[in-house]
Design a binder for these strands. Structure first.
Lengths: 228, 228
DNA sequence: GTCTATAACCGGATAGAC
DNA sequence: GTCTATCCGGTTATAGAC
């Protein structure tokens, strides 16, 4: 069940070749239509060999996920280093997510449901995928901390995780979006990022203090207690 | 792909028997461990016959979903007819969801991910499962309209759908919950239902008017425009 | 036309020899 | 680390029974 790390040069080559073939085929034919046999065939190895490196088809998806995360992080690096306005940073970051994932739009549905499955090793709430999730959460921490927005400490603590969840929500919307150029998703992103920044500033209002404390306390409790 | 409705008495009997066997087996062994062959065997029909009534294993899940919905609706009927306080109605309704689903806790993970899959016929955002979703949304409309809370029209319009989504969120939390007696989920329910009612009352504050209009407009737009 | 059964297909996963 | 052979379970084709 663990991820196999190749021990030899030859092993590394095989592993990389299998992964490449898989990514290509996912993109060409979609997730279900890509069989483990077709991946092995295109790579030029046997079916059994594929399983030596990737204990299941799902584990190939995990690599796929890592792949797009790296593309995404690279795509927004310039923005994050020059821009200070939080709304702009956030909007640019989320827009870049859907742009980066666009080539995989057709595959995304199956992948999303795999990831959402609590029984899957890929579920981001614990398991093999957790380290990668933490990287993405860290990326949103950078989005926030690199801005000139002054955010109360209790909100700042939980915000990156909330933004990661928000990103998931946008991706789920995007999966259903069939508008030309995926314009609807972009509209929703523009509207929601603005709204989020506005709500953060409103959270300082005295009347909202009580609810804010309760909400943040609840989130913290959910996140930090084990198994839930 | 359509749902097959038996045309004869004998057909009805077979269909009901298959469904019963499936529900029992799901509960006994979980979703994955229950094979279509085992369902057919327990029913005393052939594998092919099962497929005459249920075009896929997923379609059995849809019936399962309907089954629990009916148990749930029956369970909360007394509460809804006697209680007028919104927070109490909402808390009781959501608590009853997890209580009703408790016997299926072990199966729920697989089922949830099946349902979340945009490619699945069971996805509630369109497809075969939509009528059932509408029934559940209607149930939340009753929870709200039967209370003595005075809710602005724009909120009241979208609230039932939001509460259905909220229920989904609670169920997802509950799936992960391994605390004894599922106490954590019950705690989260109590806290969140209270919070929701509180936030609805706060929504009338002048400072929040703008955000409220924007949020409700956005939700309405997402719900009502096709394909998204 | 409605129901039931048998036999096969397909693809993910595994065992075990080399 | 690589292969072949096999299992297992969802699904389908199709022939016959009522």
């Amino acid at each position: 069940m663990a991820i196999e790390v190749p021990k030899t040069r030859r092993g590394e080559t095989s592993r990389a070749a299998i992964l490449n073939a898989a990514l290509d085929l996912f993109q060409e034919r979609g997730y279900e239509a890509t069989t483990m046999r077709s991946i092995a065939e295109r790579t030029g190895v046997s079916l059994g060999s594929s399983y030596h490196y990737f204990p299941s088809k799902e584990h190939l998806v995990l690599e796929f996920y890592r792949h797009t995360h790296e593309l995404h992080a690279a795509a927004i690096a310039p923005l994050l280093s020059r821009e200070k306005d939080l709304a702009t940073r956030l909007r640019g970051t989320i827009r870049a997510v859907v742009v980066t994932c666009e080539p995989f739009h057709a595959v995304a549905g199956s992948i999303f449901s795999t990831v959402a499955n609590p029984a899957s090793p890929l579920n981001p709430f614990g398991g093999v995928a957790k380290p990668l999730r933490d990287e993405v959460v860290q990326l949103y921490a950078d989005v926030v901390s690199g801005s000139d927005a002054r955010i109360p400490a209790d909100i700042a603590e939980m915000l990156p995780l909330m933004l990661w969840l928000y990103q998931m929500g946008i991706l789920y919307f995007w999966i259903f979006d069939r508008s030309p150029g995926r314009l609807r998703t972009l509209e929703v992103i523009d509207e929601t990022t603005d709204l989020i920044v506005r709500l953060i500033s409103l959270a300082n209002l005295p009347v909202l203090r009580g609810s804010r404390k309760r909400i943040l306390g609840l989130i913290k409790d959910i996140v930090e207690r084990p198994q839930g």
